[in-house]
Each structure stands twice: as C-alpha cells, then as structure tokens.
Write a protein that binds this DNA or RNA. Structure first.
Lengths: 224, 224
DNA sequence: CGGGTTCTTGACTATCTTCAACGAAAGTGG
DNA sequence: CCACTTTCGTTGAAGATAGTCAAGAACCCG
C-alpha cells in the first residue's frame, strides 16, 4: 500500500483478477512477528496478500529506517531485482498469503493468465510508488498524515454508524518511517486533528474519522 | 534514473540486454523541449533511452511539482498503469529512443526475449524507486545533493585528468523537485560544497568532482 | 543589446526534529 | 495474579534544518 493521491472515497481498491488465478501452491498462513524474507534473500516466491497486514522495510547502516510499503489484502509483495529481495518483510497481523513462483512472474509457467496478472501488479506497483514520491517529496506533515489516513480508510475502513473507522496495526514509528517524519511529529499531528474534532482516537490502534471531508481537504493542502 | 544507495563508483550502470533486442519499430529522434507524452495519455509505446536525457514529472493542482525520474541512456520510460501514462515526459537533451509496443510488454508480441527484458526493466524500476524512497524520506539536504551527484557521476560522468566531471542538463529547480527540496537549498548546498573544495562549478551545467570520497561520505551521512 | 529566465545570496521564519520526561500499555517471570 | 521491566505513545521546550521572501547577478536568446 502506498499513499496515492487521495480521492473522495468513491474509488475502492481494485481487486486484482489475480485472486481468481489458479494457484500453483497452497495458501500460506503467517503469524504476527514472523519474517517472510530479508533484504538480500533470493526471491523464490511472490505473495498476494489475501488477509492480514505485512510491513516492508529497508535499513541504512546508521539505523535510519524507511518503511517502503505496507502489504494489505490485494497487494502483491516480493518483486525481485536481480532475483533478490531488496527489503525486509515481516508480519504485522496474521496473514493468509497466496504464493506465486518467481518463474511464473518471469513467464516460465504453464498458466499464462497468472503471468499477465503478476505483470499488471508490478505495473500498479510502479504507478503507486510514483504517487508516493509526490507525498514524500512535496507534502507537509499534516498533509502526509491526512493522506495516509484517507488512503487507509478508503482501503480498509469500516462504517460504524455515521462514521468511518480504521485500524492502525502499525506503531507510530512505523507510520513516521513510512511518511518520512518522526514519531513525535506523527503524534502531535494526530493530537491536533483530535483537538480539531476531525478524528477521534478510540484506542491507540483505532481511529474514527469524524469529518472525512475536512480530512480530505487537509490531505490536499487546502488552507485551514 | 533514481537516487539509489550510492556505491564507491565501481559498479557501472547495468546495460540492459534490451539494447540487443530486435526492435519492432525504427529508432525515434526527439528534440529538446518536445513532449513524449502527458499524464492521462494512453500508453502505446515504451521507450528505451539510447542517448539524450528525458524528464518525467507529475504536478499537483496547486502547482507543486515532483520530478519522478530522469531518463538516461539505458533507462526505460513509459510504464503504464491501467494502460495510461501517469507522468508527463519531455526532452531535456535531444534523444534517440527505441520504442517498444505496449503489447510487447504485455507479452502479445512475437519476440519473447524482448518481453522478458521489458519485464526485467520494470522490476529494476521498482527496486530503484525503493532506494529513492529512502532518499526522499530519510536523507538531509546535503546527503540528497551528494547522493544525486554520486549517482549521476557513476552513470554518466567523464574522466578529465584526475577529476570526474558531470553535466547537469536539468535546472536547479528540476534537481530540487527531484530531491524534495527548494531551488535555494540546492544552490546553497552546491555553494557550500564548492567552498569546501569538494566540487568545482565550471559553468552552471558542469560540475567537477574534486574529492569524490568526501562526496561519497557526505552522501552516506558520515559526520563532517 | 535588451528582456526574460535561471542562479545565487542574504535575512528572516516556520516547520519539523531533537532531547527529555512521564504515563500507559504490554510482556515477563516469580 | 501481581510486581517488574520494557516498549510505545504523548507532551513540552529548545534548537536546527530547510523554506520563504526578496534582491541582485549571471546567463540565454532573439
């Protein structure tokens, strides 16, 4: 999942046709805290996330970290470069994964349609990352956090009465490392939104969107 | 071209095997200032850059701009999402391009090897963008500018006597919009590097790398 | 040569980070 | 089950980095 240019919520996440592809191997279940792969590992499989949440990270020697993406249902993770993984990937929420062999991405498998769908997933990945560039390079802290909440709500929010609600399975530090901010800035930004009654923080992991249009405006950088 | 984690210069840019692929259409020549495509255009072709420099940009309604990438020889530009372009692309330096039809990327062409190479190019793209995330999200202004110069020098620098030299066909504003900075910050950073005798600015477009190891250290965030 | 763009520099400011402290939550072991 | 430890989240104060605004210099192009 990347922070794409947010919409008014009308556009739901596209469900990849991949989900209908004939799998070549059985579904995998992975537990919170376990690692799927590490940077430098040889790529053997790509994974379509069917449920749960994954976290893709990259580390610098000095300890600085970037969360590259979160893997939500519908996302495909594990695209290789030079046949190797370039991020670590671990599990935030118990997940069901549909593995696809690397050779299938590369076209050396019998099921041609799956190959095509994996390619489409790679192209969606590129496009999503381009949007994310704009967010990392050009948006303010408020815009980043607001955009993040908008995208998450669109993808995995639930309606509760009049309000939308969204779960944050990742820590504040994860969000900060995803958006190019510090933990403190993410905290303060959420607090300010709470004070402005734009959101409510039910428990630490649960955000209620009280004024979605205001949040959307914030994400777009509309003044005040 | 993305700002990947810089190396000591030993690793040259990988020359894609694509360059040997049998083209299905003749080479195209494009002039400085012309546009290859705009955001929203239907994708008909991908282009392998054989010479020259392209610029890929994305605009926000309020005028903020992100330079998504520069297209240098060896790069492939024009990967679609939903069969549409998601950036504008124009020409900074007269370029020779090798077009490949969209259907070839999608596997509907006779030349299977070209299809494979285009897919590999897309995967390299994803990996390069992941590195760029780290740069946009977690690096300081000095580190960004130093990284940028390192990568450019590695890819297209020329040796002149004891020093490396690199041409900057893009404006300072382009560099700023690529790195998530302002023009002024890019300027000041270059000036400081010049004062520290790390680089020399021959003319506005030509940078001479006088102390490459210091520049590399700066790009990695080593203190002082 | 002249007008427009791009680059550079300075002064000032705002945003975000850093450092520090504390409370809440969650995990651990007796 | 409860004390203990550790991690995570929140808030404040102070500071640094990069942005904004403004002006002049350099460069480019017809």
């Amino acid at each position: 999942m990347y922070v794409t240019i947010p919409t008014d919520g009308a556009a739901a996440a596209p469900i990849p046709a991949l989900i209908n592809a004939k799998p070549k191997s059985p579904e995998t279940h992975v537990k919170t805290g376990s690692y799927l792969y590490f940077e430098g590992d040889d790529v053997k499989w790509l994974y379509l996330v069917k449920s749960g949440v994954l976290r893709l990270t990259r580390l610098l020697e000095d300890g600085r970290r970037q969360v590259i993406a979160f893997g939500y249902p519908g996302d495909v993770v594990g695209f290789p470069a030079e046949r190797q993984h370039h991020t670590d990937c671990d599990v935030l929420i118990d997940a069901d994964l549909q593995p696809f062999s690397l050779s299938c991405l590369e076209g050396n498998c019998s099921h041609q349609e799956t190959h095509r769908q994996l390619l489409q997933a790679a192209l969606r990945e590129i496009s999503g990352m381009q949007d994310h560039f704009m967010m990392l390079g050009r948006k303010s802290a408020v815009e980043k956090v607001a955009s993040f909440l908008c995208v998450l709500t669109d993808r995995v929010g639930t309606k509760v009465g009049n309000y939308s609600q969204v779960e944050l399975p990742m820590t504040r530090t994860d969000i900060a490392d995803f958006l190019g901010l510090t933990t403190e800035t993410v905290c303060r930004t959420l607090t300010q939104m709470r004070r402005d009654d734009i959101i409510a923080i039910d428990n630490i992991q649960t955000i209620i969107i009280q004024r979605p249009t205001v949040l959307l405006d914030l994400s777009l950088g509309d003044e005040k």
